[in-house]
Computed example of a mutant assay.
Amino acid sequence: MTLDRHASDRLIHDPEGGLPRLLEIMARLRDPATGCPWDIEQDFTTIAPYTIEEAYEVADAIEREAWGELRGELGDLLLQTVYHAQMASEAGHFGFAEVIRAISDKMVARHPHVFGDESRDKSAEDQTRDWERMKAAERAGAAARGTLDGIAMGLPALTRAVKLQNRAARVGFDWPSTAEVVDKITEEARELQEARATMTETEIFEEFGDLLFVIANLARHLRIDPEAALRAANAKFTRRFASIESALAHRGKRPEESDLAEMDALWDEAKRLEKAAK
């Protein structure tokens, strides 16, 4: 239902307006005659990078346990859904209500042990398997597609690698144990090292990608999220390098005025102190 201008203004300025308020704000921002020129110019392609960025900022706030920030980050992420739904409505594809209906129907259908007659006497692992089985049935019910179809191209590369490997593993294309994966990593690393002198840049690029792909497979076999593990490693590197800078500052130095030997020793000290504090 389209509101008249007075009702629209009243809703937009109502702090208790809830989701209808946000939907109305977005509709007004996209109004071709009176909206924001920047918002009017955007399309799905230009907004998609912001959607990805906002999802990462939510994950970052959770990882830092920054609960005050999380509230705002979740709002930013919700805005992305509202933005895409508004553009889809303008193009005649679907509206926000259909987005809500689709996810609600999916949640009910995929939780028969909560909303249906199935027993709740299942472990989380059992429910994960049921979820994957239902997803596979939904894919089979659509037009015939390949095993790896439907895995989003826009996912982070490590996450997509794991999803591709999981999908292939369901049809039996997988190493039987972690040992074979570790052996393959050793083989790929050795080949890359030995052939660097004779490889072209394109070949080195490809071989390095192969090595990362197998490392992602090791993470899968170890039941580790490689993205989370790398984020943790990044945070640890940032923390320890900050300790190096702090120690150098006490010596009246900056990193560029130091050398590798000194900074490496300070790194080891930062590492020792971290472990002692645990």
Rank of each mutant, 00 (worst) to 15 (best):
Cys36Asp: 13
Glu269Pro: 02
Pro49Trp: 02
Arg110Asn: 13
Gln127Glu: 13
Ala91Ser: 14
Glu187Phe: 14
Asp76Met: 10
Glu245Gln: 14
Ala161Lys: 12
Glu227Cys: 02
Gln42Cys: 03
Ala97Ile: 07
Asp259Phe: 03
Asp60Phe: 04
Gly116Phe: 08
Arg139Asp: 09
Met134Tyr: 09
Thr46Gln: 03
Leu29Gly: 01
Leu22Val: 06
Ala276Val: 00
Arg167Asn: 08
Val58Trp: 01
Arg139Ala: 11
Met1Leu: 04
Gly75Val: 12
Ser246Asn: 08
Leu22Arg: 13
Ile103Leu: 12
Asp39Thr: 09
Phe208Thr: 15
Met1Phe: 05
Phe94Cys: 14
Leu266Val: 06
Ile244Thr: 05
Arg101Trp: 09
Ala142Cys: 11
Glu180Gln: 13
Cys36Tyr: 04
Gly17Tyr: 00
Val114Asn: 01
Lys236Met: 11
Tyr50Phe: 09
Arg223Ser: 12
Met26Phe: 05
Ala179Glu: 15
Asp31Met: 01
Gln127Ser: 04
Gln80Cys: 15
Ala55Ile: 05
Asp225Thr: 02
Glu227Ser: 10
Gly154Val: 11
Pro15Glu: 03
Thr202Ala: 15
Glu16Ser: 11
Ala179Tyr: 09
Phe237Arg: 14
Ala140Phe: 01
Leu192Cys: 11
Arg120Gln: 13
Trp67Ala: 01
Phe173Lys: 08
